[in-house]
Nucleic acid binder design. Structure first.
Length: 919
RNA sequence: GCCGGGGUGAUGGAACUGGUAGACGUGCCGGACUCAAAAUCCGGUGCCGCAAGGCGUGGGGGUUCGAGUCCCCCCCCCGGCACCA
């Protein structure tokens, strides 16, 4: 072994060795159980960033660990190659997206290889290749024929200057990013996947995913949003609406129906068609609602506005006339595009009612209110008045309380006071959204919310104006994109036959690759050679669809394609899919928690229903990694704009205790401002190029730092000093191994007498093995696994016995360290093993096993507490009985002092851990 | 706004099942080596206190022999998003 650690040469050597051995080729016939480890494939943006390094290192650590545990591991890699950045780059550099993408792939593949990932490169795929997307098109035509895919119109962001559809991210402050024009909503026909048909299965399937983080499952549950409620029909007031009909709403709170004081509809609601024509104010309000982007984030942050329409509908129980409002917070795409408003029991309705001075009717009582209600009932009954007699149309409308008693027969002053007092009680500042007991609700008075839910639903059904309904928040998945760099939608529009799917023998519909888009409309729609075609059914002149698919479609099934990446006879080879699926471990960023993971689960079910794959779920275990963040630095320019400075150009000054007190730019020595610690991003110029770290310290240091600085699911803070610390540790491992090997390698300890020191070292070694095995396998906390190895190495360095037995223990420790670190720093381990076991190949080694004999201890240390506070400790025989422990503890000097002559009230003994004396 | 996740030394983090708070790394301080520096190695390092001891896991309360961990209230940060009726 060389005396010093030289990562560049040992990394090249190790990688060459793995290549020659085809070490990571995943064969189908291995006789071992399979382990399919998948990291989310990258978008080929140009070069690797730290997030990629983190993602793929985690995957590689798990893959190499499982390989050492005896599994036939498959770790593939590929490219999510379609997408918008390629079109942007094409416009900026006048290069076709295809050429730009392929050259990025070539560069990034080299970078990934330099990280030393144990990938089966023979399975590499790129989604922009026709041999990949042809199967996507094939599945599309199957699903289209089945009715799982259908066409309808949907709103898009339209840039009226560039005459193009914009993605949400291309709309900045309501304007197109290139043209600066105010964005409009425009309805265009699109193809949709009927994902809602699978909503229930996608929901219940989550319960089977024990290997998924609870957080992700919760997010998906909320996204699917199953609710049980009631559809309610409010019939039109024919006089104001001008025709008969019903306004349908959906509510999860039918128990509050008696408190409904108005209904609100979306700007696009058909009930408004006629009235908007005659009312210019209403018309302009509706127009205003229709402006702006379609992004829900934008709509969500809008000021809540509304306007009365002059229309009325009838309350289905009371037949009271309720005003119809148009409101910008009601969305046509959700439910029925109309809601019944119960200001007393809904936050949003309450805020809206306050804004526009709409009545608030309380119908669900809090416990305090309920007792007042009961008192009032009693008082009224004493005077022969039924409380239900007068509440229906007036009582609950507390704004109009003063009028109510005029409708009644003569009553006493006491009753008037009681009613007024009750009315005051209901003048609360905030809505009561909790369930409770119904009041002011006529025949439903006294029912609990859940009882009223049933009673009101049943009555509505009897009256034929509503029924119980289960509703999902999930909407169908629109996949049409008016873009060039995507998978062409395999449909032919025939004037005679309609939408005709492209027949199998004509697939793939190949995307021409030599096109440079210009940002104004879809390039394919301007290429007759692409869209002119004959109808497959009648042979007549027809037009090919020029929209492409959402790129989420490609990433929804790539995991299955890896099982048989070159299969030319189908989307997947069924046998290969059966062998490898499901993915045993999936690793990727938390930002994909909802959309990508839900779409992939959906696709798995679609492919299952086509008989292509088995099982119901694609990903057995999921690990969502945190972001890579770094400090930010900036200077303010004269215009008040922030100019971001890369951390590598900054020197941070600290005080005598190491606290940061300021920072300067290296180039000019002048101060810069310290910003927050944020996700590495171009916009904040706080990115660190992984290539620079690999070049300076080697891939192993980069991998080690990434795994050591934080557990994988937490955010990881970049630190140059931390990287140097990781490098230092590798040098220490190298030196310790080198120094040992220099004195001659020996067989690892097998048995025989040992000194107390050597015994203690072996104890620590085998405790470490057990811990590291658990950390890597069950806990997936690589940071603690590394820390345990650091402690072990520190102990070994202090251990200086030179007897043959001691040297055999040292050999045992060093071999175990090389093996335990192998998943994380495989190049280094490869070289260490070559030194420790000349002629032997680490690839064939299993993960070390903890030796039960070494773990046996005669004596253990236990802690002594007095009143829960640490006062000392004792070394006792492992099997000491309670009486002995109590006696020893009470005799302890510190305990005597604390007791100060008093006696212990109680003694708590936790076996093997502590004794707590309660004084 | 809603949902989810967090808040522990100067700092990244550890403490896995309610049982020694601060492992390991970084930084800082001191020392060795060196003409000197870097590198390397050794020692120290939660706060207050001379010490005994006390205090300490965002803040307040509670449960418990014992709370970073469990419960209630509040504050702050991060992520996601959906006014979902």
């Amino acid at each position: 072994m060389q005396p010093n650690y030289h990562p560049e040469s040992i990394e090249q050597q190790a990688q060459r060795h793995w290549d020659e051995q085809q070490a990571f080729h995943a064969g189908e016939a291995s006789g071992k159980p399979k382990y399919y480890c998948l990291s989310m494939f990258p978008y080929p943006s140009g070069k690797l960033h730290m997030g990629h390094v983190r993602n793929y290192t985690i995957g590689d650590v798990l893959s190499r660990y499982q390989r050492m545990k005896g599994y036939n591991v498959m770790q593939p890699m590929g490219w999510d190659a379609f997408g918008l950045p390629a079109e942007n780059a094409a416009m900026a550099n006048n290069v076709p997206p295809a050429a730009w993408t392929y050259s990025n792939i070539d560069y990034m593949r080299k970078q990934l290889k330099s990280l030393g990932l144990g990938i089966d490169w023979s399975r590499e795929i790129a989604t922009c290749r026709p041999d990949y997307y042809r199967w996507e098109q094939w599945l599309f035509t199957r699903l289209f024929k089945k009715g799982v895919i259908y066409k309808k119109t949907a709103s898009v962001n339209w840039d009226p200057v560039d005459h193009t559809v914009l993605a949400n991210e291309q709309v900045i402050d309501g304007r197109g990013w290139r043209s600066g024009a105010l964005v409009e909503k425009r309805d265009i026909p699109m193809y949709f996947f009927r994902i809602t048909q699978y909503a229930e299965e996608l929901l219940t399937g989550l319960d089977t995913l024990e290997g998924w983080p609870e957080q992700v499952k919760t997010m998906q549950r909320n996204w699917i949003g199953k609710s049980s409620g009631c559809e309610i029909h409010f019939s039109y007031d024919t006089e104001s609406v001008g025709k008969s009909g019903v306004l349908k709403v959906y509510t999860t709170r039918p128990d509050t129906l008696m408190g409904a004081t108005y209904v609100a509809v979306a700007a696009e609601h058909p009930i408004l068609e006629k009235v908007a024509q005659n009312d210019v104010h209403l018309k302009s309000f509706i127009e205003r609602c229709k402006r702006g982007s379609v992004a829900e984030a934008d709509i969500a942050t809008m000021e809540k506005e509304g306007m009365p329409t002059g229309l009325f509908v009838m309350h289905p129980i009371t037949s009271e006339k309720l005003p119809v409002w148009v409101a910008n917070y009601v969305l046509m795409g959700y439910g029925e595009g109309a809601v019944m408003a119960v200001p007393a029991h809904d936050e949003r309705d309450y805020a809206f009612a306050m804004n526009y001075d709409l009545p608030v009717k309380h119908v669900i009582a809090s416990p305090e209110l309920l007792s007042k209600w009961e008192k009032l009932t009693y008082q009224l009954e004493a005077e022969g008045i039924e409380i239900n007699q007068f509440e229906l149309n007036k009582f609950g409308m507390i704004h109009y309380m003063s009028g109510i008693l005029t409708d009644l027969p003569e009553v006493s002053l006491a009753v008037i006071e009681a009613v007024n007092e009750f009315a005051d009680q209901m003048q609360i500042e905030s809505p009561n959204v909790a369930h409770g007991t119904l009041v002011c609700s006529g025949k439903y008075n006294g029912l609990e919310s859940h009882e009223a839910f049933e009673a009101i639903s049943a009555d509505l059904q009897t009256k034929n104006c509503g029924q119980k309904r289960t509703q999902y928040r999930l909407r169908d998945w629109g996949i049409s994109r008016q873009r060039y760099w995507g998978c062409p939608i395999p449909i032919i529009h025939c004037p005679a036959c309609g939408d005709v799917p492209v027949p199998d023998e004509q697939l793939p519909v190949v995307l021409p690759e030599n096109v440079v888009p210009d940002g104004a409309g879809s390039p394919l729609a301007k290429m007759p050679e692409f869209y002119e075609c004959a109808c497959p059914q009648c042979g007549g002149k027809a037009r090919r669809e020029t929209d492409t698919m959402d790129t989420f479609v490609e990433s929804s099934w790539y995991y299955a394609r890896y099982a048989s990446p070159n299969c030319a006879s189908g989307m997947v080879d069924k046998q290969a899919a059966q062998q490898w699926l499901p993915v045993d471990q999936y690793i990727g960023g938390i930002e994909h928690a909802i959309l990508h993971l839900l779409y992939a689960r959906f696709f798995h079910k679609l492919m299952r229903d086509e008989g292509l794959v088995q099982g119901d779920e694609p990903f057995k275990n999921l690990l969502t990694q945190g972001m890579v963040v770094a400090p930010t630095f900036y200077r303010e320019t004269e215009g008040g704009k922030k100019q971001w400075i890369n951390p590598s150009e900054v020197e941070v000054k600290t005080d005598e205790r190491g606290r940061p007190v300021g920072a300067t730019l290296r180039a000019d020595g002048q101060p810069v401002n310290i910003g927050g610690t944020e996700k590495m991003a171009k916009s904040k110029n706080n990115g660190v190029d992984p290539q620079a770290i690999i070049n300076e310290f080697g891939a192993d240091t980069a991998r080690l730092f990434m795994m050591f600085a934080a557990p994988p699911d937490q955010q990881l803070e970049w630190s140059d000093a931390g990287v140097e610390g990781a490098f230092r540790f590798l040098k220490r491992v190298w030196k310790a191994t080198h120094d040992h090997v220099e004195q001659g390698v020996v067989p690892a300890y097998r048995g025989g007498d040992l000194s107390a020191m050597a015994k203690a070292l072996r104890l620590q070694l085998h405790q470490t093995i057990a811990k590291v095995d658990d950390d890597m396998g069950r806990r997936k906390t690589f940071n603690t696994a590394i820390a345990a190895n650091m402690e072990l190495l520190n102990a070994l360095v202090k251990f200086d016995e030179q007897t043959p037995a001691a040297r055999s223990v040292a050999q045992e420790v060093l071999e175990a360290v090389a093996l335990m670190l192998n998943p994380i720093v495989p190049h280094l381990s490869h070289a260490l093993w070559a030194g420790l076991r000349p002629g032997d190949d680490l690839l064939a080694q299993a993960f070390p096993k903890a030796d039960a004999n070494a773990l046996m201890q005669d004596e253990i240390e236990i802690v002594i507490q007095v009143n829960g506070k640490l006062r000392g400790n004792l070394t006792v025989a492992k099997n000491a009985d309670k009486a002995t422990l109590e006696r020893l503890a009470l005799a302890h000097e510190a305990v005597q002092k604390q007791l100060a002559g008093g006696t212990a009230k109680k003694i708590v003994i936790v076996p093997g851990r502590l004794i707590n004396i309660v004084a």
